[in-house]
Design a protein around this nucleic acid. Structure first.
Lengths: 238, 238
DNA sequence: ACCTGAACACCGTTCAAGT
DNA sequence: ACCTGAACACCGTTCAAGT
């Protein structure tokens, strides 16, 4: 046991150890706590030791993103394009839920990582195998946007926008405080509608998974319709 | 003239002057250049002078976001819900194109600003006036996600992902370099399809405006279909 | 070969002081 | 009342040095 710990301690740094520690740090403490200095401290090493294995922080973030993308399940064999794409996107969403820092990290980088490109290439391949023209597949990928990676793309967290700070965060309520409900009556109304929804709501607020699948199916159903109608950029059905 | 400049110079700082300078700085130099110190320098003032008018940098960002949201056109009177929502979203997109830092700023804040809430409230109001149930309007707002603010939500800039750095940025090409096309054949294929598209492509790469409207109409058409079918969360048409 | 310490040019923000 | 300067606790990263 002591030998093993001793071995670990004197194991030279490796890119792999650095990446795992970085993901663990971001998972546990948030992306804003991921500094080269904090990461080095977690690894029991001087900050500059990291630079032998990653060229800078941007490259570290890219590699972390690829670790998350690698968690997405491969396509289910034998499924049609729709179920295959749907399944992968829901799998991507689960991966993102394990790494809540990932969406902001992906959006702040402006270059696609190799792992991300491989995932996207494979999704396009599924569409092409399902009979989509290259033209339609292209527009569909744009229309899916970051949702293809499982992003839910909410503008803010509906459950905890009730006050200026964390006062209500302990027990978020779908009902707004009166002064906000008066200023934003329609938002208050749909928040109440969500709270009184059928069994889909377990706790307070609305069901993220339901909302995500609602949006995903809205897109996929629309895409299927265009595909069946033989959509081309020259001929758009009204 | 000299009097006017002199007056300006000795005009005490105001929240308004600070916000305008902050937006101008972010527009011109990017959000990563917007530091309290750079902003103070642009205003010819010590950094700490800013803190009399904004409580911290987060509050500054919130106020900047509200300035951008205020640029979104009001709803066109007399239009149906679909054209009204469509028009406002396209207007929001134009506002974002004038302030490219805004999407990342919005996504990095986790509390909605008053201006953003007012805009969303007004969009929900348009849906309700168009006969949507509160329930359906709620799900539609989630499904639109950040697209309701005109975000295009691309995972990366397709036009300039050809190399590791800006070498090809001067003249981005829809055709990938051979080694990338070999690794990602389906992506290469749809990139070629975009380049050979009909007249919608002016320059190289694909037409952002076309892709945005394609995705927007896919969503709005799907929403219209649900609305006409009397969708409720209990009864989902296949 | 692999790691370190000191240093540089930055951050946001607090605090006591100036005018 | 309004602004400032020095300071604190941070960043990412370079460079020359240690072992």
């Amino acid at each position: 046991m002591v030998d093993q710990a001793e071995t670990l301690r004197r194991t030279p740094l490796s890119r792999d150890r650095i990446l795992r520690a970085a993901v663990a740090l971001a998972d546990a403490a948030g992306i804003e706590s991921l500094s080269m200095r904090n990461l080095a401290q977690d690894l029991g090493v001087a900050p500059m030791a990291l630079y032998k294995h990653v060229s800078n922080k941007d490259e570290l973030l890219d590699a972390m993103i690829d670790l998350v993308v690698a968690e997405i399940d491969p396509p289910a064999p034998g499924a049609g394009w729709k179920q295959s794409v749907r399944g992968r996107i829901l799998s991507a969403r689960q991966a993102l839920r394990r790494h809540p820092w990932a969406p902001l990290a992906v959006e702040s980088r402006n270059m696609a990582t190799p792992g991300l490109l491989a995932y996207l290439d494979s999704v396009v391949g599924t569409l092409r195998a399902g009979g989509f023209s290259a033209d339609l597949a292209h527009h569909v990928m744009h229309a899916m946007g970051s949702r293809v990676l499982g992003f839910s793309q909410e503008l803010f967290d509906t459950a905890r926008d009730t006050g200026r700070s964390g006062a209500a965060a302990d027990q978020p309520s779908a009902d707004m405080p009166p002064e906000m409900a008066a200023r934003f009556p329609h938002l208050a109304e749909i928040a109440r509608a969500a709270a009184h929804d059928d069994g889909s709501v377990v706790g307070p607020g609305c069901d993220d998974q339901f909302e995500f699948e609602f949006a995903l199916d809205l897109l996929l159903d629309g895409v299927e319709r265009l595909h069946r109608q033989g959509w081309t950029s020259a001929h758009r059905p009204g």
